[in-house]
Amino acid sequence: MKNTILCGKDIHKTFTQSGEETQILLGIDVDIYEGDFTVVMGSSGAGKSTLLYALSGMDTITGGSVTFKGQEISKLSEKKMAQLRANEFGFVFQQTHLVSNLTLFENVAVAGFAAKAGNAKEIREKTDMLLLKMHAENAKDRLPSQVSGGEAQRAAIARAMIGNPGLLFADEPTGALNKANSEEVMNLLTELNHDGQSILMVTHDVRAAMHGNRILYLEDGKILDELNLPPYGNDDLKARENNVLSWLSSLGW
């Protein structure tokens, strides 16, 4: 029996523009389990990113509730939410979103300080260790504008990991990368998951989605279906790919 780490109940999200309302999420119920690599897929405009940001508390919801480790986060104060993001959540975005005037090392370390992940020495050591693990140690003293997209994204994963998050959110983490870099980033995420890291990722890339052990399919603001897989690497990759593709095909992908 898996432990639920994040629970969304009857999540609604409506955008209003020029007085016109557009409903994006139509009452979603979803549980995210500890240790899982959960992937959200769906067609363009289905509400994948909206769901990710609603579940992570990065955006407000119009209705329903989101609970993380038993605590309802949709009602947390701005300060408490910031603490939660610092200590329990990690984020990886499609664009790397590194602070432009900080080096890669500093981008990671600053997040460590925000998460109070130790004293200054410990944070420096941990930053070095994470950058090494993410194969970004050679670029650590460069600014985001001076490194490749892959290096920047790997540093962004290191930044997301420095606070030992309970859950790592990833929004199209390979969306802006070439094939080689995408492969490397996904392998790193998989490695983190195998080390016990819970991950919730949104993607439209089947190759990326295959790294998850649970895939949710979103359509018109609702979860249409889900596919459970064995941990990535424990099965035949070709068969895994065919399995995912036929499942997606059955959903009209």
């Binding site: 993001r85 979103h97 998460a115």
Partner: peptide, 16 residues
């Protein structure tokens, strides 16, 4: 704006 968003995302509060 973007940098502020990033800082918020990694756990800085508005007060910070």
């Amino acid at each position: 704006q973007k940098d502020l968003g990033i800082y918020k995302a990694i756990g800085f509060s508005s007060s910070n």
